[in-house]
Write a protein that binds this DNA or RNA. Structure first.
Length: 783
DNA sequence: GGAGGCCTCGGAAGG
DNA sequence: CGAGGCCTCC
């Protein structure tokens, strides 16, 4: 990569954003406008212009984004990318905090508590304080604490804040301030930082120690931030501090794609940025390279309904493309079938692959009906966002051993495995340990370690078992610095009996658990042997030394903030992707199905009380639409099962917000109409492709009018059955049939043998179609 | 101390 | 409906 030819690959505003290397820069990047390309080229350009990669910090929100970006930069600038600091906010700050830990009174091997650890600790605290966990739901309390930390409030400031305190009193939870204090102290005692602490403490260390601030200000002379609209106040404040010396800070974001306000992201940061840097250069990337004109314009017509937004006009020079198809189904199951059928047909008609398709939904529960339908048509798929590798019990158990060996004060790890595998240390004993340790203000480990202290008068048997446990953990600890990660990890896995216990479980689940642990151990082996590391490198990083022993401690630091296993191989699989819209952010697919466009589902019921929340839902819809490159299909059902009950649904208000010119309705027209065989009107050419101004008002009246649960349930399921279940095997040539998409047609030929009968059908206005009878679900109208 | 039945409750999700 | 938490019973 010698010359700056890469600049020729950029459009005008992109190039301007890349070459304006000095001073504060904000890039407002519309959907599909080449944001990642601009970020990577900007870094490449900095390096080409003589900036030492060592002085560049690039921050992202997800490990996935960090990894992808690093890969892309390496292809542009090669090896030099090595010294770049690139990673998630949390990973980079964790790395710095390990270096600076002692200034805050933490050991550098502090544990990072995940949300499960936090929850378990909070439950203990609630019990100790004698508080009702129905009222003080751990999640509610933790959210409150999290919000405080993300806005840089200490527990002292929280307790002194009239507004916080009166809110808590009003909500009937006056003790939250106390819980905040106890939680922070207990984490500290355990040498643990939760995710929010990584931000909060980073801010503290920069604020309280001018020499630390100076050091990192001069290290990170150039700072880049991706997904800026997702930053919270703490992150913004840290960025401002770090950038204060040189003000070479470049943030990239799109206010229209801010979908994480519910967890503290603050769009205000975009406005604050303009205010805080008066000489800010703003670039707007408005040309969309991803989608058809129809899709881009439809997305614009939706997002313009939001009051709060930064003005921009996203456009594309791509072709107009097909209209957006709107499918309406009677039930969630039928919606699944329609979506699966549509995918099947598009695959056949356009010769596309499974991997070209995505099904996006608002809630995970919606995946079930999609899965069932895809399975019926034998279409391979993958669901994203299930239980991630590192959240599995067997993985967490073994990692808890590693954590405890590295940091014996890690109370959550200790509680987790002190009786796993069962060694006769039960709940009563553990409870006594927790309470006694809290009373004496020491960690459980300190309590156990001191032989002079018989904690809470345990009997001889219990004492023996406890001391055996201590001996076991100590036997691992002494190896920590002397053997490599793989050796110690496999030693722990086998000598604790964890591996044997899983091995002996021959159920399918047990087998899979055993395999998961093996997979983890393989990962550790790879780490040990190849030294491959995921987190950002740095000058102070000991693992950079090739002679450095690859210890378990280094491995744990490497994976502490990982939430998912590496899924390199998965990209090759030809599967349809199923995921929530949140999970789809940043991705693109040739064909996208957005399903479940119903009131109270999308927009979510919980968003209807405030305009802000509704606008976030609308941005979510915008994100969903803009994932599609060339074919977008949206759908809804008139009824669906929710928590075991059949409920009726109204079409989403978002459907009306797409300008009607971009939509065509396809599919069965039996909504609020008699079924085909009951009505002569179906002899006429079906209302196919009639650009009806989508779902305007009428259905609302109709659908919700009769909320008689029993009746509704029965009626609906029969209707569905009669639609889906028509016997297609006796279809013969010469028959008149109705197809859910193509309307009425005439069967010209039936060939193949059951169950793979294939019919050639002529549909007026559409042409000849080859249809597999087992999938096409043709209705026979006349012989 | 552990297994199994009963009850409750349900949002999206990064690190 | 289904997962996870809690309680009871052995």
């Amino acid at each position: 990569m010698m010359e700056k030819t890469y600049l020729d690959e950029l459009n005008e505003p992109q190039r301007a954003a890349v070459t304006q290397t000095e001073g504060p820069v904000m890039i407002i990047a519309g959907a599909g406008s080449g944001k990642t390309r601009v970020l990577t080229y900007r870094i490449a350009h900095l390096i080409r212009s003589g900036v030492d990669p060592f002085n560049i910090l690039s921050l992202t929100f997800t490990n996935k984004a960090a990894k992808e970006m690093r890969g892309r930069i390496e292809t542009v600038v090669g090896n030099e990318a090595r010294n770049l600091w690139m990673g998630t906010f949390h990973a980079v700050f964790a790395k710095i905090l390990r270096i600076e830990a002692e200034k805050l009174g933490y050991p550098s091997n502090f544990t990072i508590y995940d949300t499960d650890d936090a929850k378990s600790l909070m439950k203990d605290l609630l019990r100790e304080e004698g508080l009702d966990d129905k009222l003080y739901k751990p999640d509610v309390v933790l959210n409150r604490i999290s919000a405080a930390k993300n806005n840089l409030y200490s527990w002292q400031e929280y307790q002194a804040n009239v507004s916080f305190v009166s809110d808590d009193i009003a909500s009937g939870r006056p003790k939250i301030g106390i819980l905040f204090e106890k939680y922070v102290k207990r984490c500290f005692k355990a040498s643990g930082m939760d995710f929010d602490d990584l931000l909060y403490n980073m801010h503290i260390v920069l604020s309280k120690f001018p020499e630390v601030l100076h050091k990192y200000q001069h290290k990170f002379k150039y700072i880049l931030v991706d997904e800026f609209q997702d930053t919270n106040y703490a992150q913004y404040s840290i960025l401002k501090k770090l950038a204060a010396a040189f003000e070479n800070i470049c943030v990239v974001g799109d206010d229209a794609q801010s979908i994480y306000a519910f967890r503290g992201a603050n769009i205000q940061n975009i406005l604050s940025f303009e205010r805080d840097y008066p000489d800010l250069n703003v670039f707007k990337l408005e040309q969309n390279y991803r989608s058809t004109q129809t899709i881009v314009n439809a997305a614009n017509s939706v997002i313009e309904k939001n009051q709060k937004q930064i003005k921009k006009q996203v456009w594309t020079s791509n072709g107009q493309g097909e209209k957006i198809q709107l499918l309406r189904a009677l039930s969630d199951n039928e919606e699944g079938l329609m979506v699966a059928n549509a995918i099947f047909e598009t695959k056949v008609n356009k010769q596309w692959h499974n991997r070209d398709f995505a099904i996006l939904y608002r809630t995970n529960a919606q995946s079930r009906s999609m899965e069932e339908a895809l399975r019926k048509l034998n279409i391979s798929y993958r669901i994203y966002g299930g239980l991630s590798f590192y959240k599995r019990k067997e993985i967490k158990d073994i990692l808890a051993y590693f954590r405890l060996v590295i940091n014996p004060h890690d109370e959550e790890a200790l509680k987790r495995i002190i009786n796993v595998p069962a060694r006769g240390i039960g709940k009563t004993t553990i409870d006594k340990l927790i309470v006694t340790a809290a009373e004496r203000d020491v960690s459980i480990w300190t309590l156990l370690e001191d032989p002079a202290t018989n904690p809470a008068g345990f009997n001889a048997g219990t004492l023996t078992r406890l001391s055996e446990f201590i001996t076991l953990i100590r036997s691992f600890q002494v190896k920590l610095k002397s053997v490599d990660a793989w050796e110690l990890a496999s030693h722990i896995a086998s000598s604790t009996g964890l591996l044997r216990e899983l091995y002996e479980d021959k159920t399918p689940e047990g087998l899979s658990r055993y395999e998961n642990v093996q997979e983890l151990l393989n990962g550790i082996r790879e780490f040990t042997e190849t030294g491959r590391s995921i987190t950002p490198p740095g000058d102070e990083e000991p693992s950079q030394d090739p002679d450095q022993l690859r210890t378990l401690e280094l491995f744990m630091q490497d994976i502490a903030l990982l939430t998912d296993a590496d899924d390199e191989a998965e990209k090759d699989d030809d599967v349809v992707s199923l995921m929530t819209i949140h999970a789809a952010k940043g991705l693109e697919f040739r064909a996208v199905h957005v399903v479940g466009l119903e009131e109270n589902l999308f927009p979510s019921q919980m968003s209807l009380d405030s305009r802000e929340d509704l606008e976030e839902e609308r941005r979510l819809f915008y994100v969903a639409i803009t994932r599609a490159e060339s074919k977008l299909t949206i759908s809804y059902a008139n009824s669906r099962y929710r928590w075991g009950n059949l409920i009726s649904c109204e079409p989403s208000r978002f459907l009306e917000e797409i300008a009607a010119e971009f939509i065509e309705e396809v599919g069965p027209r039996h909504v609020r109409k008699p079924l085909p065989f009951e009505d002569d009107r179906w002899d006429q050419r079906p209302a196919l492709r009639t650009p009806r101004p989508a779902v305007s008002g009428q259905p609302k009246v109709n659908v919700t009018a009769k909320p008689v649960p029993g009746k509704l349930k029965k009626l609906s399921s029969t209707e569905v059955r009669s639609f889906v279940g028509s016997e297609s095997s006796d279809i013969q040539s010469g028959m008149e049939v109705i197809h859910e998409r193509f309307g009425r047609g005439k069967v010209l030929l039936v060939e193949g043998k059951s169950p793979d009968l294939k019919a050639t059908v002529f549909f007026p206005g559409v042409g000849n179609k080859q249809l597999l009878l087992k999938f096409a679900k043709l209705q026979i109208v006349a012989s």
